[in-house]
Design a protein around this nucleic acid. Structure first.
Lengths: 351, 351
DNA sequence: GATTGACATTGACACGTTTCAATCACGGTG
DNA sequence: CACCGTGATTGAAACGTGTCAATGTCAATC
């Protein structure tokens, strides 16, 4: 890193023109060195590169973006920055983005429509190259507006986005519910509680559908085999609170296993069990959904349906990249199949 | 949201000039409406605002930044996007940033020097308004370079940044270690294991200093009262692996309590205990450091030294804001004192 | 009625870059 | 020797905005 001869002076930021002067070429040539190095003779290119290094020049992306019309940053709009599920996704997006030399603008909608809209406007203002978005709900009007602004996007975890509207990357929630159901039934459980948030959340609704299918295909009667427990939010507190309800049992008898709509609920449930001196899987088998990092960290480890979160983010970003490269790109819908991760919280039902 | 008369056409993005034309004023006036609304007559302002709404104009920040020289985005450089500690900090930064209408550029150094440097160059390229940075180590040359580029920054969790170099916001690690030590000693523990990473990490080194102080002020001999267990990384796996070492005991007898340099280690340790059919606090008291969300989620809850993470992020961002407002701003060093959160993993030593 | 001042608005320029048509240098070909 | 083609370089224009000196308007004051 070259020394500045006068560090205290508020040096006028060095631009392409000072570099040009210093190297004895025109500004256009400097620009060429930066953008199409192959077009410029090796000898002059080296001279320019030396000047860049000596003056410690760093390209002003505002100027660049303004003139070229394209920006070098993409937006990532998540529902909740602190949710471990999203951070893993963010890592995937970020890793893929740096490979294209793109910066990631982190935006947080906090599950609030106003904030979602405001954040998308911000992206439009930046003339962002694109956006990876986890929409709050199935209302696509904000995203449609984004398209109208000429900003491509990829929806995350929203398999129901019509393919003509845009790309989407998601995980098959029905398959996940099915696999979970089969796992528990395979262990001999014939009465299963489904601890879930409101079915207005499409994802958990589908997980329930899958679970239902598992129950019916096993020849069980959903009426007696399933105990549906609704809580308002998918957080640990609600999971802990639900313990009493589920242990009290449904109309006939108490469930021997509980399938939670996400890991946060499941972890809360496990904690609630511990508080009461009970434990999984001895007293009840517990299963989660998502496979967040912590799921492996508790004892017993939480058996759960793993979402390929990192891959999800990475794929979303790479779809976005295809948009940039190939202007005639058609929208795509990628659907991943989740996998069950067996840990200690589920076990065979002892009759 | 107004309808676009021809949604399929690649509409040339509407600028300040079309708005001006549509409202029958000059571009300058539109700019004034956007930036100094008080200077323009109510009647014309309303007309311009109507035009903005009708044309669905959104300000191009590239142009704006270029001309004004200031950008509307700040950088947040973290060591690891997925670490729950950082995400909480990120939330604080983000909340404070939106209040100033600033966007947050999320950058991940992944504890790699090359990536840290690259990310800071990126920020410089954006002519970012400022940066909140968690430096990898105590090497300040990258940050100095940033200053030279005219970009103010605030260091996070680095109390050792000289005040003449820049602002810092951090938590008193020595006080934290001291408090933890006092807590355990107060419970009657006279042999305490300190499970820690390498002391080259300044933060954990200071925590150890605090712990030492607690031991000596209680009149105990550090030689016999403290069992130092070093592991290469501060992650759960290492915590779990360390269980055997610590249960085996030091040179004299085994410790009755373990203080972990962070929660990740502590959680791994708890899991390791569970695996072996043991549990805190019956078999050994366990204490962590950080108070990440999960600490409250396990059973028993993890007693830990709580860092005001959200506040840390928020404060850092607000210090940055002061830089913008007041150009004659002097650097500041904010030091928070951590607090102990009592949960179930520690208990009195039964003699 | 002339002068002043306050307030609103205008118009042109500048920010740093990219782009592209135009120019230049030069070696090869007819 | 004239001509052409190729490849390297140039210079000016343009992107959309903010700024500021200059101009315009109007009512109040002398």
């Amino acid at each position: 890193m070259p020394e500045n001869p006068n560090p205290t002076a508020a040096r006028r930021s060095v631009g392409i023109t000072q570099v040009a002067k210093h190297a004895g070429v025109s500004p256009g040539t400097v620009s060429n060195v930066l953008n199409r190095p192959e077009r410029v003779a090796t000898e002059t290119r080296e001279r320019v590169e030396a000047a860049i290094r000596e003056l410690d020049y760093v390209r002003n992306s505002s100027g660049s973006n303004l003139r070229s019309g394209r920006s070098d940053c993409v937006g990532l709009l998540v529902l909740d920055v602190t949710n471990p599920y999203f951070t893993e996704v963010a890592r995937g997006v970020e890793d893929e983005a740096v490979e294209s030399g793109l910066a990631v603008l982190l935006l947080n909608s906090a599950e609030d429509h106003t904030r979602q809209e405001r954040n998308l406007r911000l992206l439009a203002g930046q003339r962002a190259a694109g956006a990876v978005v986890m929409p709050i709900d199935d209302d696509l009007s904000d995203l449609r507006w984004l398209s109208k602004q000429g900003i491509p996007w990829v929806a995350l975890d929203r398999g129901d986005v019509p393919i003509e509207e845009g790309c989407s990357v998601s995980v098959d929630n029905e398959a996940g519910g099915l696999a979970a159901g089969r796992h528990l039934i395979g262990l001999g459980h014939e009465r299963i509680a489904f601890l879930t948030g409101p079915f207005s959340i499409d994802q958990v609704h589908r997980r329930h559908q899958g679970l239902l299918q598992a129950v019916t295909e096993a020849g069980l009667d959903p009426e007696t085999a399933l105990d549906l427990v609704h809580v308002p939010q998918l957080n640990p507190e609600q999971g802990e609170k639900a313990v009493d309800t589920i242990l009290a049992g449904g109309p006939r008898q108490r469930s021997t296993a509980v399938f939670c709509a996400n890991d946060q609920l499941a972890l809360g449930f496990l904690k609630g069990l511990g508080r009461r001196g009970l434990r999984a899987p001895d007293d009840i088998s517990v299963m989660g959904y998502d496979d967040i990092d912590v799921a492996a960290l508790v004892h017993p480890g939480l058996t759960t349906v793993a979402q390929p979160k990192y891959k999800l983010g990475r794929t979303a970003m790479s779809l976005l990249r295809e948009h940039f490269d190939d202007s005639g790109h058609r929208h795509e819908r990628r659907l991943f199949t989740p996998e069950i991760v067996l840990r200690g919280s589920t076990a065979a039902h002892r009759a």
